[in-house]
């Protein structure tokens, strides 16, 4: 059983939900990312998504796009992010997924990526611009390497496509709450719960909701029906507002505690 599966099982036994935190690796620096991961774990994060910065992040809104640009400017590469995971593994067993657009992995070399990711302790991979039909070989290679392949369902996904996505997915299904890019929103779509109920009927895997989840109220709203939430932009925004402040890491920790206490 890998770390993701184990985590969801533990949470289920405790009748709890997964609180997943997305942060852009290398924003504002890789060292802060390392400290953030440890602090977030202490404050209620159950799983960490590390964003691999990309020059053209077309599924992301301005907040994550901006953090990616700054991370790239600071010299962040996939190599360095993998090494970061390796060093984190000396201190924590929290499940870690990498969220990367396809091209950085493709150029890194898919084989090399998988062998490093596996031996350094990456548990899952999320590729927002890779529908599963585009690279089935890579997906089976991931699964052979015990790296979970997390795919998306969206409000526009046809019902008949859900079983296919379910079959290709390992770890959990990432449900995109709205048609749009990542970013904080004032409210979640009104038909979200209805939609989630339908999806839950068609999958045996944990379903986590992301995109737009930005307040404890949002978290509470969806916890009634799903297995977890992903919060990203709201946290990145907080990091951005406090970058340079000496108390940054603690501050973000407190913010995550506040969000996850729902």
């Amino acid at each position: 059983m890998n770390r993701i599966e184990k985590k969801f099982k533990e949470l289920k036994e405790k009748k709890k939900k997964a609180f997943i935190v997305f942060i852009t690796a290398g924003f504002p620096s890789l060292d802060i990312t390392r400290r953030l991961v440890l602090e977030l774990e202490k404050n209620g994060a159950d799983l960490i998504e590390l964003g691999v910065p990309f020059s053209d992040p077309l599924a992301d809104g301005p907040v994550i796009q901006n953090s990616s640009q700054r991370s790239l400017k600071a010299g962040t590469t996939l190599d360095k992010i993998l090494s970061l995971v390796k060093s984190l593994r000396k201190h924590t067993q929290i499940p870690i997924c990498l969220m990367s657009y396809y091209n950085p992995i493709f150029c890194f070399g898919k084989k090399r990526f998988l062998s490093l990711a596996r031996s350094f302790g990456v548990d899952g991979i999320i590729i927002p611009d890779l529908p599963p039909e585009e690279d089935k070989d890579f997906i089976s290679a991931c699964q052979r390497s015990k790296i979970d392949t997390i795919f998306f369902l969206s409000p526009t996904t046809a019902l008949k496509r859900i079983p296919f996505i379910n079959r290709m997915t390992r770890g959990f299904i990432y449900y995109v709450s709205l048609t749009g890019v990542t970013g904080a929103r004032n409210r979640l779509p009104t038909d979200l719960i209805k939609r989630l109920k339908i999806i839950k009927k068609h999958t045996d895997k944990p379903v986590c909701v992301g995109f737009g989840v930005s307040t404890p109220e949002h978290v509470k709203q969806v916890f009634s029906i799903v297995d977890g939430v992903v919060v990203g932009s709201a946290i990145i925004k907080k990091i951005q507002d406090n970058a340079g402040s000496p108390g940054l890491v603690k501050k973000i920790g407190r913010f995550v505690k506040y969000l996850s206490s729902a």
């Binding site: 396809y102 890779l130 795919f151 996505i165």
Partner: peptide
């Protein structure tokens, strides 16, 4: 799937798959 040899395809977020179909 719109591949010209090994090129082309659809590398887009899931939300767009329905629209492209």
């Amino acid at each position: 799937q719109g591949h010209f040899g090994s090129f082309g395809g659809r590398f887009v977020p899931e939300t767009l798959i329905y629209a492209l179909d």
